[in-house]
Simulated scan of single mutants.
Amino acid sequence: MRILNRSATFALAVVAASVSSTAWADNASPVGLWRNIDDATGKPRALIRISESNGALQGRVEKVFLAPNESPICTKCEGALKNAPVLGLIILSGLKKDGAEYTGGRILDPDDGNFYSSKIRLMDGGKKLEVRGYIGVSLLGRSQIWQRQD
């Protein structure tokens, strides 16, 4: 009887843990610190802090991992961002929750200085973030998978 009670208690604990982790995944938020992984090289490029203000997300570069030939400034950016330091730059903005995704935003690629339409979605229970930048329609773009750091 005692063994049966332990087994039942253990089974209940496993069920409770799986339910709570599923609930956490459903309520996960992209707010936090993310490691940006270059989709071409597979190497880390930056740490980006995503925050929320008035229902919209934005992402600011907190740390950069530069190759020896890369510049720490946005030389190809235009206007007020011309020659701005990449460190501290807001590269994601205007993303709003739309079902399981956040859409309607913009992303800046400091390598080419261009802004693209953007959408993001959480993956793997909130441990990964698919970030898509595109022109016009989502099919014409590229995606990166970012890894949660906090």
Rank of each mutant, 00 (worst) to 15 (best):
V61N: 05
L95T: 01
G79M: 11
D98P: 06
S20D: 03
R60T: 15
K97T: 06
A28L: 00
A100G: 08
G141Y: 05
T75W: 02
Q147R: 13
R121Y: 11
V86M: 09
L89F: 06
P110A: 05
A23D: 07
N83D: 15
S71M: 08
C74T: 08
P30V: 10
L92I: 13
K127A: 15
A100I: 12
L87E: 12
R60W: 02
L129N: 10
K43D: 11
A23L: 15
I37E: 05
D112S: 00
Y102V: 05
R106Q: 15
S7D: 06
K76M: 08
L122R: 08
A46E: 01
V137N: 10
T75C: 04
L12V: 12
C74I: 00
G55Q: 05
E52N: 10
G141M: 02
I145F: 04
G136R: 09
P68C: 02
C74N: 00
L129H: 07
K76H: 10
G79D: 09
P85G: 06
V31T: 13
P44I: 03
P30W: 06
S117C: 05
W146T: 04
I73T: 15
N54V: 01
N114A: 08
I50M: 13
G126C: 00
Q58C: 07
K97V: 04
K119T: 09
T75P: 03
P85D: 10
R2Q: 13
Q149I: 06
T41L: 04
G94A: 05
D98E: 14
A23Q: 11
I135R: 14
K76R: 05
G79W: 07
E130W: 06
L4N: 11
I91H: 00
C74D: 00
K119H: 14
D39Y: 01
W24E: 14
K128F: 07
K119Q: 15
D26V: 13
D98G: 01
S71G: 06
G99D: 08
D150R: 07
R148F: 00
L122H: 03
R45K: 15
V31N: 06
E70V: 03
S29T: 15
D111F: 01
D109H: 03
K127C: 05
A23T: 12
A17I: 13
K96S: 09
N5G: 07
R121K: 15
Q147N: 12
Y134H: 12
L47T: 06
S51R: 09
Q144L: 04
N27T: 14
I91Q: 02
N114E: 14
G42Y: 05
I107H: 02
L129Q: 11
L139R: 07
Y134V: 12
I3A: 14
F115W: 14
V19Q: 11
L108Y: 03
N69S: 14
A84N: 08
R2Y: 08
V131L: 15
I107M: 14
D38N: 13
A40F: 09
I73E: 11
G79H: 07
E62Q: 02
L122A: 07
L89E: 06
F65L: 03
G125S: 13
I120R: 10
